[in-house]
Design a protein around this nucleic acid. Structure first.
Lengths: 251, 251
DNA sequence: CGGCCGCTTGATTCACGTCAAACATTGTGG
DNA sequence: CCACAATGTTTGACGTGAATCAAGCGGCCG
């Protein structure tokens, strides 16, 4: 099993759960969450499906380490990446209600995955209303991100669209404490970016070259360096509102 | 105040709330919902904003009659329509948690709107877990629709994209009991369709003409006739899964 | 060392956008 | 009830951003 990416992420960083940042949680809530979400952990190699469209999942998954993605595929094979999941993020709280998944969840890198039986999380949520609220908060933010992506693909130019994706991933990484100054992990290939932005890999390549020439970013050895975040945000018409960061305890 | 559209929707059809179709509700739940959602009703003329991006809303809104839309606008004015809201649909249950709206809600036609004070709905939801679940169901379905739209704009061609939108609106209308055989209300202008699909109004026009020539649909006097739904669904690569209709009592 | 995966480059094509004007429909006010 | 204004649709000529096709390059991994 390929575990290269795991070790390559450096010293095992302190786990920072996105959920736990929700402002209304007590320290006790956060402890409970952490133990529940890390009780049962498995490692999935890069580029594998975690759960597929049509499945009836019995577990809620958390990405503890590595990146994952949601995607949908049309009947003829065209694929759209719908969002990326960063370390500390919950994949599918919605399985409490929806019977079948309408999209596929896959790993981008090797992923350490926390698995929580549906029933166990349900009990936690019933015992702790604040945790229920935290769960819905992350789900609603995911919805807001999805709306922003629709807007991005529908209205932004290729250049703006890629810039916007870079802004989002950098800001989310930073919020999760995963950046080092102006640099963050960036395990996506240009084909991934193409599938996420609705363009071809070739055009992604040419657009990124242009961004490099413009001195906005640097992308190499699975790392992204943002030279001037303000300028990147400006060209991307990026506005952090949609991430609803104001619910975080650290806001 | 212009109430033309209201009267033009024919005999005041029996109100069919989307929420009430949720399978786990009892008759008592449905009654409670209906009285709560229709206690306070106002009429908003066509093409007005209901709540705007950045607002901190105090009411949950239901569309009782007419069509509404969600949209986002970029700093330079480009606008993306994110979804359409049909009669019987809840606009924004998410205000329980999110502090500010990240998108704007506007009317397409004249809309009869039910307004429920946040607090009142919160109490209802606490008293009736099944209603809470119904609420989240509609919110999760809205999320699934958003993912499908992202996919549509990202992967489908102009022709497929419009066909897909037509399928969705027809199927959702039919589910809400708003179709008459193969015909449904269709108050969108070609500019609306353009803003929703990320294309220009001119190209929408040419594409629709092509669909008419292909005998798929007819669009006139604010009505859409679908001549062959199966064929329309086939060319659109339409799959109803994402609407999660299997939670409906009438499924 | 060799194979594979991801990146880069070039030539060409095409789906869709832009600009501009005319036409059709609908609702309004005199 | 007609006219006209506003809104929505259609048409044409032309431009362009991004797709397509095809080939070569480079670094990483077994």
């Amino acid at each position: 099993m390929d575990v290269g990416s795991v070790s390559s992420s450096g010293t095992p960083t302190a786990l920072s759960l996105n959920l736990s940042a929700f402002g209304k949680l007590t320290a006790a809530d956060r402890d409970l969450l952490k133990t529940t979400l890390t009780k049962r952990v498995r490692t999935v190699p890069a580029r594998r499906d975690i759960v597929r469209e049509g499945d009836r999942p019995h577990f809620v998954n958390v990405v503890l380490e590595g990146w994952a993605q949601r995607s949908k595929q049309l009947a003829d094979g065209r694929r759209q990446i719908l969002s990326f999941l960063l370390p500390g993020e919950l994949c599918d709280p919605n399985i409490f209600i929806l019977k079948r998944l309408d999209h596929t969840l896959s790993t981008v890198t090797t992923v350490r995955l926390g698995e929580v039986p549906k029933q166990e999380l349900r009990e936690l949520v019933q015992a702790r209303p604040a945790i229920a609220e935290a769960l819905w908060w992350t789900e609603l933010v995911a919805g807001a991100i999805q709306r922003e992506w629709t807007t991005s693909i529908g209205q932004r130019t290729a250049y703006e669209r890629i810039a916007h994706l870079f802004c989002e991933l950098f800001v989310r990484s930073r919020t999760a404490g995963l950046t080092d100054a102006n640099t963050c992990e960036f395990p996506l290939t240009q084909s991934d970016i193409a599938d996420a932005t609705g363009m071809t890999q070739v055009h992604v390549n040419r657009t990124i070259q242009e961004m490099r020439r413009d001195g906005l970013i640097d992308l190499r050895s699975r790392q992204m360096t943002v030279h001037d975040l303000d300028r990147l945000m400006a060209v991307a018409l990026f506005n952090t509102n949609y991430l609803h960061l104001d619910h975080r305890a650290d806001a």
